[in-house]
Simulated assay, not measured.
Amino acid sequence: MTGTAALDIARRYFEAWSGGDFDRAMEFVAPDIRCHAPAGPVMGSEELRAFMGPFAGMVQSTSLLAAYGDADNAVLIYDTATPVVAEGPGAEWHHIVDGRIVEMRIIFDRLPFDVARRSHGGQ
């Protein structure tokens, strides 16, 4: 890959899942992806689908705040709005090989979701 190829793939993945087309987003993910998520490791595309799919399905809107990348790596910083949280900031690092995301690290602020859960009687 050359130039900003990884950034192009990462942006296409982000635009697909944040735009409501999770199946399209998964086309950019390698079958053996390794994802480092706040809740722990997510291994393989089917586990990623089970982990990310429900969240992507409840996202009402996103704002891409910044995107950086080179030939092999990309970083996206964004904000999400869901029915329970108006502002849920997150970031993702992607390592891309042969046009597919093979490794991902997801970082997001869990506090707004924890506050919303507590205010609705959850633990």
Rank of each mutant, 00 (worst) to 15 (best):
R11H: 03
R118L: 15
G99M: 09
H120F: 10
Q60R: 13
F108C: 05
F108Y: 14
Y68T: 12
G88S: 15
R105Q: 11
D72C: 09
F108E: 08
M43I: 12
F22Q: 04
G88D: 05
A6W: 05
V59L: 11
P89Q: 10
V42L: 07
T2V: 11
A116D: 10
A30K: 03
I33H: 00
R34E: 15
G69W: 02
P54S: 01
G90H: 02
Y68L: 15
F22M: 05
A50T: 05
L64Y: 07
F51V: 06
Y68K: 03
Q60N: 08
P31Q: 03
I106C: 09
D109N: 14
A10D: 06
R12N: 13
G57S: 09
V75Q: 05
A16M: 05
G90P: 06
D21G: 03
H94Q: 08
E87W: 00
C35K: 03
Y13G: 00
E92G: 07
G20Q: 05
H120G: 11
A39C: 00
G20E: 08
R117L: 15
E47C: 04
V115N: 02
V75I: 13
H120N: 14
E46M: 04
A81C: 10
D21Q: 09
F55M: 14
V75R: 04
F22K: 01
A16K: 01
D8M: 04
R110K: 09
G122C: 03
N73F: 09
P54C: 02
R100P: 01
L76C: 11
A91T: 06
M104F: 00
A71T: 02
L48Y: 13
A71E: 15
G88H: 14
F22R: 03
T62G: 12
A74H: 01
V85I: 08
L65H: 02
V59W: 10
L65N: 11
R24A: 14
I77E: 12
A50E: 10
Y78K: 03
V59A: 13
R12P: 01
T62P: 00
P83E: 09
S18D: 06
